[in-house]
Deep mutational scan, measured.
Amino acid sequence: MTYKLILNGKTLKGETTTEAVDAATAEKVFKQYANDNGVDGEWTYDDATKTFTVTE
C-alpha cells in the first residue's frame, strides 16, 4: 500500500510517499525521514486517506 506524509515543519514543508505493508511500518519510515530532516512535531494519521501529517 502507498502511504503519504505531509510535512508542516518550521523550515521544511512538503510531501513524500512510501510503499509499506501496514501503517505501523510506514510510520517508522516517515518518523525516520522527518528526524533526518530536522522536523519534530505533533503527528496525526488519517486511515481513510492513508496520510500521516507532522506539524511543528
Rank of each mutant, 00 (worst) to 15 (best):
M1Y: 15
M1G: 11
M1F: 14
T2L: 14
T2Y: 09
T2D: 05
T2W: 13
Y3V: 01
Y3T: 00
Y3E: 00
Y3C: 01
K4Y: 15
K4T: 15
K4F: 13
K4P: 01
K4V: 12
K4M: 08
L5V: 04
L5D: 00
L5P: 00
L5T: 01
L5Y: 02
I6H: 05
I6K: 06
L7R: 02
L7K: 01
L7T: 05
N8V: 12
N8H: 10
N8C: 10
N8F: 12
N8W: 12
N8G: 04
G9K: 04
G9F: 14
G9E: 02
G9N: 04
G9W: 06
K10R: 11
K10N: 10
K10W: 11
K10C: 12
K10T: 10
T11S: 13
T11G: 10
L12N: 08
L12E: 06
L12S: 08
L12P: 03
L12G: 08
L12K: 11
L12R: 07
K13I: 09
K13E: 05
K13W: 12
K13D: 05
K13M: 09
K13Q: 11
K13T: 09
K13S: 10
K13F: 10
G14Q: 12
G14V: 15
G14W: 15
E15V: 15
E15L: 10
E15W: 15
E15S: 15
T16G: 04
T16E: 06
T16Q: 11
T16M: 14
T16K: 11
T16R: 12
T16S: 08
T16F: 15
T17A: 07
T17Q: 11
T17Y: 14
T18V: 14
T18H: 06
T18I: 15
T18G: 03
T18P: 01
T18W: 07
T18C: 13
E19S: 12
E19R: 11
E19W: 15
E19A: 08
E19N: 11
A20H: 03
A20T: 05
A20L: 03
V21T: 13
V21L: 13
D22C: 05
D22L: 04
A23I: 10
A23F: 13
A23Y: 14
A23C: 11
A23E: 07
A24L: 12
A24D: 10
A24F: 12
T25I: 08
T25S: 14
T25Q: 13
T25G: 08
T25A: 14
T25K: 07
T25Y: 08
T25V: 08
T25F: 08
T25E: 15
T25W: 09
A26N: 00
A26P: 01
A26W: 01
A26Q: 00
E27Q: 11
E27L: 15
E27S: 07
E27Y: 15
E27V: 06
E27T: 04
E27A: 12
E27K: 10
K28D: 06
K28H: 09
K28L: 13
K28P: 03
K28T: 10
V29M: 09
V29F: 15
V29C: 07
F30L: 05
F30E: 00
F30G: 00
K31M: 07
K31D: 02
K31S: 04
K31V: 06
Q32Y: 06
Q32F: 05
Q32E: 09
Q32H: 07
Q32G: 06
Y33F: 11
Y33M: 05
Y33S: 02
Y33W: 14
Y33R: 03
Y33H: 05
Y33E: 02
Y33C: 04
Y33D: 01
A34G: 03
A34R: 01
A34E: 01
A34P: 00
N35T: 13
N35A: 15
N35G: 09
D36M: 13
D36S: 11
D36I: 11
D36P: 01
N37Q: 15
N37K: 14
G38H: 09
G38A: 07
G38E: 06
G38T: 04
G38Q: 08
V39W: 14
V39L: 10
V39T: 04
V39K: 02
V39Y: 07
D40S: 15
D40Q: 14
D40R: 13
D40M: 14
D40G: 08
D40I: 14
D40A: 13
G41D: 02
G41C: 02
G41S: 02
G41V: 02
E42P: 05
E42C: 10
E42Y: 14
E42T: 13
E42H: 13
E42M: 12
W43L: 03
W43I: 03
W43S: 01
T44C: 08
T44F: 10
T44M: 10
T44Q: 10
T44D: 09
T44W: 08
Y45G: 00
Y45C: 01
Y45D: 00
Y45N: 01
Y45L: 02
Y45F: 08
Y45R: 02
D46L: 04
D46P: 00
D46F: 04
D46Q: 05
D46A: 04
D46E: 07
D46H: 07
D47G: 09
D47L: 08
D47Q: 09
D47H: 09
A48Y: 11
A48E: 14
A48T: 14
A48H: 10
A48G: 09
T49S: 09
T49N: 07
T49F: 05
T49L: 07
T49Q: 06
K50N: 09
K50M: 12
K50Q: 10
T51W: 02
T51F: 03
T51D: 01
T51A: 04
T51S: 05
T51Q: 04
F52W: 07
F52R: 00
F52K: 00
F52H: 02
T53M: 09
T53P: 00
T53F: 09
T53E: 05
T53K: 06
V54T: 03
V54M: 05
V54Q: 01
T55K: 06
T55P: 01
T55N: 09
T55E: 06
T55L: 06
E56V: 08
E56P: 05
